[in-house]
Simulated scan of single mutants.
Amino acid sequence: MFVIKPMPDQIPDDLVTLLEQVETATVGHVLHSGFVDRHIRAVLPNKRVAGTAVTIRIPHADSALLHWLTAHVRPGDIVLVDRCGDDRHACWGGVITNCMKMAGVKAGVVDGPATDFSEFTRVDMPMWCRGPSAITTKLLGSEGAVNVPISVGGQVVHPGDAILCDESGVIVLDPLQARAVAEKAIGMQENELVLLERLRKGEKLPDISGARAMVDAKLAP
């Protein structure tokens, strides 16, 4: 059985631009939830992308619905794939990579393996997944769902969520809260530049952070 829901509204372009200034690790200083399992890793180095979540759930060895989705995705989408625990079959390979790139998709996030890694590099398609596999899915036409809530790396993803991906991981954000999170993180990154300049001028990190005072207080007789 196939379940197909409408494509979600896309997050505004200015929010995408704002998010792409944010390091996921900086958000890690602010939030404790929304982070996809760290074993879902970037295939390409030094990539940071943000966009709108388009969700798909395809269990076991059937990737017919992923093929179908390539005709419906839009520029600015990030496709997140719930593999229902299948860590054996690679659902996303070279042809899917090219189709998604041609459609303007900004990245893929697969809770499972992928294949044809050289194509990610050749067409510059950012991908986050659980590693490579030579065993691929087939066109079985059995079941799946598009634009329903899914689970990716232990994180619930709703269609239309704001997604931020970089070399440190993947974050899922409520689009109504994403702007505030991004602005706070950017402020923290700007403060870090000030901190680094103070260190270059000779100050010591524990004096700036207060760690020296904390430790010395515990060591005091």
Rank of each mutant, 00 (worst) to 15 (best):
M1V: 10
V3W: 06
K5H: 13
K5F: 03
P8E: 09
Q10I: 01
I11A: 11
D14T: 03
E23H: 14
T24C: 09
A25W: 00
V27E: 15
L31V: 09
L31K: 09
G34E: 11
R41K: 15
A42P: 02
V49Y: 05
V49L: 12
V49W: 07
T55D: 10
I56Y: 05
R57P: 05
H60F: 09
A61F: 01
S63V: 02
L66W: 06
H67V: 14
T70Q: 13
V73G: 04
V73H: 04
R74S: 12
R74L: 05
G76Q: 12
D77W: 03
V79P: 09
D82W: 04
R83Y: 01
G85E: 09
D86T: 01
R88K: 14
A90C: 10
A90N: 05
C91S: 13
T97V: 01
N98L: 02
K101L: 08
K101F: 07
V105T: 09
K106R: 14
G108L: 15
P113N: 09
F117G: 08
F117P: 00
R122L: 10
R122Y: 03
R122A: 13
D124C: 08
M125F: 14
M127F: 06
P132I: 02
G144E: 12
G144V: 08
A145S: 15
V146N: 03
V148Y: 11
V152Q: 15
P159T: 15
D161V: 12
L164W: 12
C165A: 10
C165H: 00
S168W: 03
V170Y: 06
D174W: 10
P175D: 11
A182T: 06
A185K: 07
G187R: 13
V194G: 00
L196I: 12
R200V: 15
K201D: 07
E203P: 00
K204W: 04
D207N: 10
I208Q: 08
I208T: 06
A211D: 03
R212L: 12
